[in-house]
Nucleic acid binder design. Structure first.
Lengths: 202, 202
DNA sequence: CTTTAAATATGACTAGGGTCATGTATGACT
DNA sequence: AGTCATACATGACCCTAGTCATATTTAAAG
């Protein structure tokens, strides 16, 4: 690895460390790019060589965190278990990991959405969280259909999207709520409902 | 009505009209508060007497539009019809009304979310779209349970939230998509699925 | 018609995100 | 080692949302 590459990595991770500390201390909005660069010992312009906007830095936090979580969980869902349980476990674990730091999650989710919302106008891949989640769920459901645990006349993609929808909606409701209700429990109940259906089975 | 009140209303609606025109012409981000106030014939500071931030103005657009739509639709759902059909009609009508102006909807939804996300930190009422939608759906489902059309052991609130979740997720997926798929049709299919359930009925 | 207090309007000013022309370090090639 | 092209760093500068001390307008009271 060349000296240049080393320095690039070094600088990027210094920005990452310093901003992480500052965000925790003072919050995202109250931390200026100036402060970050001063503490990191670089010029302001340099920051924008690494992250196109201040929000992009926040997204980077989200990506790092997601990487950890998804890897952790993808393994776990390889275990043998009924499809519904696997899906539930997967989502509930995700939920629990977010429950650990509500404030950071708030920032990540709301800024991320905004960012994706706009950048979605441009062409390019949908790197959004929801798409990734949908894909994983789709695969799990497919196995479920093969085993006869999941109705085989449903559209897999639609079902995966519905599950994703419920997951994110619960997450957002939880983030907005001030009372301390459990995101993971709320979600668990809703997943049951999805498998059962809302309509009366006479 | 006093002269003061008249002027206030006059000024607010001038801001509203001018900004509406400018947003359509040049987009939200590319329209500055300076431009708006110049065209409206007021000083910059005055703008902020009426709207605390530029985004608040956008939210005001959203509220105005929602008011129209919800009133229109709330009446329509008073008709006699099966619960599922009523819910479907309601949501599909909503969907269609958004389909008419995708760009504006994009702005409203993504900015609104961001705004609510942050302001949700403060105490106070949840004036969010999703909450309102949930309430309407909850009432519709209640009638359904009374008529035996909807399973009576489901938690009404949970069910309403699940429907809301699917509605918003579809909306957002549609907004992010570049290909022209129909939001209202996609939604319609998902509502069917929710009533049926994902699990196999053996 | 004055006086006076409160509401509203004003625009110079501040703050912070983001740009860009210029300077400097790096490494490939001779 | 010396030359050169290219990648990267720099900080003065720009732009625009939002603030605030001051000025003006309204309306109520005397």
């Amino acid at each position: 690895m060349s000296l240049r590459e080393k320095k690039k990595i070094e600088t990027k991770s210094r920005i990452f460390e310093v901003s992480g500390r500052l965000f925790k201390e003072k919050g995202f909005e109250n931390t200026t790019v100036d402060e970050i660069t001063k503490e990191a010992g670089i010029a302001k312009g340099t920051f924008f060589n690494y992250f196109p906007t201040k929000e992009a830095l926040l997204m980077y936090f989200g990506e790092q965190k997601d990487e950890l979580i998804y890897n952790l969980i993808e393994n776990e869902t390889k275990r043998d278990a009924p499809t519904k349980e696997k899906i539930k476990n997967f989502l509930v674990h995700l939920a629990e990991s977010y429950e650990k730091d509500k404030e950071l999650t708030k920032l990540l989710i709301f800024e991320y959405r905004r960012y994706i919302g706009y950048s979605g106008l441009r062409p390019g891949e949908d790197k959004s969280r929801s798409h990734r989640l949908s894909t994983i769920l789709h695969d799990l459901l497919k196995v479920g259909v093969e085993n006869g645990e999941v109705s085989n006349d449903i559209k897999l993609t639609k079902a995966a999207e519905v599950l994703t929808a419920v997951y994110f909606h619960s997450l957002i409701t939880w983030l907005k709520s001030e009372t301390a209700f459990s995101f993971s429990k709320d979600l668990s109940g809703k997943i049951d409902m999805l498998f059962e259906g809302i309509g009366d089975r006479m």
